[in-house]
Simulated assay, not measured.
Amino acid sequence: MKIKKTEFGIIDQQIVYEYILSNSNGLSLSVITYGGIITKIIMPDKTGKLEEITTNMTTLDEIVKARPFHGSIVGPVAGRISNARYKEDEEVIELVKNESSNTLHGGPTGLDTKIWDADTMELDNEIQLQLTTELPDGENGFPGNVKVKVTYTLNEADEVSIHYEANTNKKTLFNPTNHVYFNLTGDYHETVYDHELQINSNQYAPLKEDNMPTGELKAVKDTPFDLREGKRLETVILNKNEEISSRNGLDHPFLLDHSTSEPSVKLTHNGSGRVVEVETDSEAIVVYTHNKAQESETGKDRSLGEHTGVTLETQQLPDAVNLENFGSVWLEPGHPFESTTTFKFSLMD
């Protein structure tokens, strides 16, 4: 196993580094210190051909300008907070709006915009990239100085794990995720229509027109959201269901069923033979099928068309702070936050 460090770009007179973690099986993980962004994951297909199985912008300038969230650490609160506010006891906490009347992915300067400090660790059968940063009290309206540590680990079992830790000096909110997009074809020009997605979930959260959850949890049975046995993504993305068609695909939260030994999520591509299984201690996952094209300034060849990726955002249910029965996203002094999501990469038998 090995780690390679290179310069990726410069922002605000600070060098942004890219760390490439590789194992002996051909699996590699590349992460930059800006936003803790996964720039690429490379793995072999069933013939042994190594290809990128994630999608992203090409340069640091593009990433900063477009802020597409591809592969980034998202927080302090992933997803949307309705009306950019919440109540703590009787006090209303006002946040900064950055998507209509809502706060999206932590606001204008979330974790994805930070230049993180980095350390590496090499063990017998795994290597780690440890990233740390701090969110100052009052940034985007969130209380508390929040110290955040995210550890990326690659091992010889072809697993990539993301471990989140956070501490605060004031009661605040914390609900992070990673926004990595998968395209197992190895060709980012291709759609993910021929991927099969399986989610171990009995309930999903319906959305309002502004993409905020209604506050309900509905059974997936007899709906297009029933992915318990796995479905070809084309049949889901192009479904005539109003909730899906009005968004041009999935952008929906699913409550995970942790009562079974099945993976939380399984993404499969028959053509390449590639499989990604997701294990997480998070209560939910938001699935977004890249419903809008992302143009690249470096040329059309690097533009990402609609439905050319699918992101599997493990987290607490969105807008939980404003909705009963959606769980807790409170972070309090003396009660550190910890959560782990693991992606297991393999080939079909």
Rank of each mutant, 00 (worst) to 15 (best):
V192D: 09
N155Y: 05
R232N: 14
L129E: 03
T109G: 00
L104N: 12
L111T: 14
L135V: 14
G106A: 04
E216R: 10
V148L: 09
W116E: 07
L154N: 06
P224T: 03
T223A: 12
P108Q: 12
L135K: 12
K208W: 03
F225W: 02
Y204P: 13
E159W: 00
S246D: 11
Q198G: 01
N183A: 08
E190H: 14
A118E: 14
T133K: 05
T132C: 06
K149F: 05
L217V: 11
T109Y: 03
I115V: 13
I115R: 10
P108N: 13
T172F: 00
S245N: 14
N175F: 02
T177Q: 01
D158P: 01
V150F: 02
G186F: 00
V148G: 12
E159A: 05
G215F: 06
E126F: 00
T133S: 14
L217E: 13
D124V: 15
Y152F: 10
H195S: 04
H105V: 01
Y188G: 04
Q130N: 11
N239I: 15
T177E: 02
V150R: 05
N183T: 05
G144W: 01
D210R: 08
L129F: 04
M212Y: 06
L217H: 04
L135F: 06
T133A: 13
G107R: 09
A219P: 04
P206S: 14
V236L: 01
P206F: 11
G106E: 04
R232I: 11
P206M: 11
F174W: 11
K114V: 08
L197E: 13
I115N: 12
Q128G: 03
S245G: 06
E229K: 15
H163N: 10
G230V: 02
N211M: 09
T153C: 03
H195N: 03
F174A: 08
V220N: 09
R232E: 13
A157L: 10
N178I: 14
F174L: 06
T103D: 04
K231C: 04
G106T: 04
N241S: 06
N167F: 02
A219T: 15
L217M: 15
N140S: 11
K218E: 12
N211H: 10
I199C: 02
V220E: 07
G215K: 09
H163E: 11
K149Y: 05
N200V: 03
K149P: 11
G110I: 00
T214C: 08
F142G: 12
D112Q: 07
A166F: 01
E229I: 08
T133M: 04
L104Q: 09
I199L: 07
K208M: 15
E229C: 07
D226Y: 09
I244D: 11
E234N: 14
